[in-house]
Computed example of a mutant assay.
Amino acid sequence: MKCDFLIIGGGIAGASAAARLSELGHVVLLEMEEALGYHASGRSAAMFEENYGSPAVVALNKASAEYHHSANGGYLTPRGLMLISGPDQEAQFRDDLKELGLAEISSAEAQALVPILNPKTVTLAGLHQAAQDLDTDRMVQDFAKVARSNGGQVITRAKVTAIHHDAKGWQVEAGGETYAAKQLVNAAGAWVDEIAALAGVAPIGIQPKRRSMARLPAPGGHDVTKWPMLMGVGESWYAKPDAGKLLVSPADADLVAPHDAYADDMVLAEGLARYEEMVTTPVTRVESNWAGLRSFSPDGALVLGPDPDQPDFIWCAAQGGYGFQTAPAASRLLADILGGHSSELDADSRAALSPERLR
């Protein structure tokens, strides 16, 4: 099978790239699992917070905002983000408050919004009402729908086993089939360096880091629907309402090898303990738990664009937990680069995202 762009990886990075690149040529997307968004993209906290991330990430967030608000009826619903702290963490609280662009509120105002907060331990709070939930599954499926509508193909259960490059382009063996492409897009998440090795391309030093999550019953029988997402200072834990339950994460970032991730019981218990310190309702039952891998480059920014040593090998990698909120602008940047179009991103942001910075 021949195509212009062969994309490896069917998470939000690969699906959004497929949609944008299908405007430029014939796209084929290969996903090794049975469905799109199986790994990190299917285990996201699903939030859009414009001020969350490094300067280059924030630039992508802001450039993605209009898409999130309006495309296909919009993907956002109100949530809000609340930072909470005790008096012994005030210096870190002030730093986080400034970095995230939150407005300080009183502990009484915080308790009015989230009645389980412990007034003895929560003495400082900040709030950003504009943080919103993202409909992540619909976003992945809608990007894939765009790719298909433009003649692209999305193929699951297609694990890549061999990659060869010659004067004619790329030949990739996956799922018992051989695919030929002019340009190869590496959107394989935690596996991007493994794909690069198969292709004979120098790795970028990807760092897959585990992020664990527990689902709890609604604390004390409260209606959590309108509660904001809660975050401990230094992102030491967070909690987010979800379908009438509460998701709590230790915000772990343990470096691991690429694999189908699962939660570490001890790490999860430590995170739940940090959460319990700030609330009045103890954790009595965990309904389920899971983990995903957030993949980072050495400097923490996304890697988007042609490899400087192999220009028809395209990196779409290192989303690092920012994949959904940056996807509209990140995929547009990728298409602009490959299509030879100007980008709305400033030169500094483009440089901070380019693979050239890592060579």
Rank of each mutant, 00 (worst) to 15 (best):
A112S: 15
P298Y: 13
Q129D: 09
E99H: 15
A17F: 01
L353V: 07
N186V: 03
E99G: 15
G9I: 09
V283F: 06
P219Y: 02
A103H: 12
P217H: 04
P355K: 11
L29C: 08
D260S: 13
G292N: 10
V303L: 09
K226T: 14
S44V: 09
Q129N: 09
G9M: 04
M229F: 10
V154R: 01
V57P: 00
V279E: 01
L29H: 01
P306F: 12
E33T: 14
V28F: 01
F48T: 02
K245Y: 12
G152E: 00
G189A: 14
S64F: 05
P217E: 03
E235W: 07
D137E: 08
A63V: 12
I337V: 15
S85P: 02
T178S: 15
N72Y: 10
A18P: 02
V58M: 12
K120N: 14
L345Y: 07
S54P: 03
F324Y: 15
G221A: 04
N150I: 03
S342M: 05
L247K: 14
L198K: 11
G74Y: 05
A19M: 03
S343D: 13
H259W: 07
G101H: 03
T280P: 01
Q132P: 02
V283T: 06
A239T: 04
G271W: 00
A144E: 00
A56W: 09
F5I: 07
R285H: 13
G25S: 09
A180W: 09
K145I: 03
P78L: 12
K245S: 14
C3T: 10
L36R: 00
G205D: 10
V160L: 09
E23W: 04
P328C: 11
Y52R: 09
G205T: 07
G321K: 03
Y75S: 04
G9V: 08
A218I: 05
L29K: 00
S22P: 03
A243Q: 14
G189Y: 01
E49Y: 08
V303G: 09
L29Q: 00
V27Y: 06
A17Y: 00
D137S: 06
F296H: 08
L102Q: 07
D260N: 14
S249R: 15
A144L: 05
A257E: 13
G234S: 08
S342W: 04
Q207T: 15
E277G: 06
V279Q: 01
K168D: 15
G232R: 01
G86E: 14
G175E: 11
Q153C: 05
T284F: 08
G200S: 12
A351Y: 03
D299Q: 10
P208T: 15
H128C: 09
K120A: 13
Q92L: 07
G37Q: 02
D242T: 10
N51E: 12
A180K: 14
K98F: 10
R274D: 08
P311H: 04
T136Q: 06
S342H: 08
T178G: 06
T136V: 15
R94Q: 12
V160K: 09
D135T: 09
A327H: 01
D95G: 10
S16W: 01
E276N: 05
